[in-house]
Amino acid sequence: MSRLTVPKTYKLYIGGKFPRSESGRTYEVRAADGGFLANAAKASRKDARDAVVAARAALSGWSGATAYNRGQVLYRIAELLEGRRAQFIDEIVHVEGVSPAEAAAQVDAAIDRWVWYAGWADKYQQVTGNANPVSGPYFNLSVAEPTGVVAVIAPQQNSLIGLVGVVAPALVAGNTVVVVASEAAPLSAISLAEVLATSDVPGGVVNILTGSPAEMAPWLAGHADVNAIDLTGATELDWVDLEIAAAETLKRVLRPAGGVDAAAPALERITWLTETKTVWHTKALI
């Protein structure tokens, strides 16, 4: 005798909560074979703006946390993801139409990616900063700090590792994130939001929007309270116009990239979302 399943409602993730789109819109997520999988929330530009407000509100706490603490929080995500490995494999098999082995490889890579970036949290400043031997009686130090609120267009393929590959490095330095998930394959993004919500990541540090990147990206690129925009997943969008819009407030822009692993793990992914601060302090003449 068969049991009637209980399907999940996929919603947005903003400020640590799971709202529907304020617009009331949804869109159908279909399996690779065309079958209906779920109705996902179709976020509006107002949802995107709400997400930026949440990210800005969370910035002070997250960037002010100790590096050791941020590293532990990121590692905790990997722990919880590991525990829900089967669910993510199942979703990826259905949405992306890949084999269970391929889906498992993607989930494992995503878990390991969190671990790799978690380890950077209390080290990247040691690698990128330095003391400067200025000609005078000054203590002079350059250190990296988070750029601020980062908007991200996630890769459209490899929906889980693509998303983790762009979000995790932004979090390492203490940035907060508004990310637009893969349009066609948003399920693992929202399931990841459930992982984030039940781990130790403060609400608002990561905000996940599902829907049309083409519709939301211009609003994020032009938003005056967004400090940087990562266009890694914007290969199919009119990204030159997005870069032009970003110039209005001199946002830092990461141009689109293709490839199987568009957001390959790299220290540069952390450092491009940092600002170098140099502090001069006088020394007494004794």
Partner: peptide, 20 residues
């Protein structure tokens, strides 16, 4: 060399920016 090996193979175009 500080970049981690890509778990997914594919030496994709480095989406990595160049420097501060």
């Amino acid at each position: 060399e500080l970049s981690a090996p890509a778990e997914l193979s594919a030496p994709a175009e480095p989406a990595t920016p160049a420097e501060p």
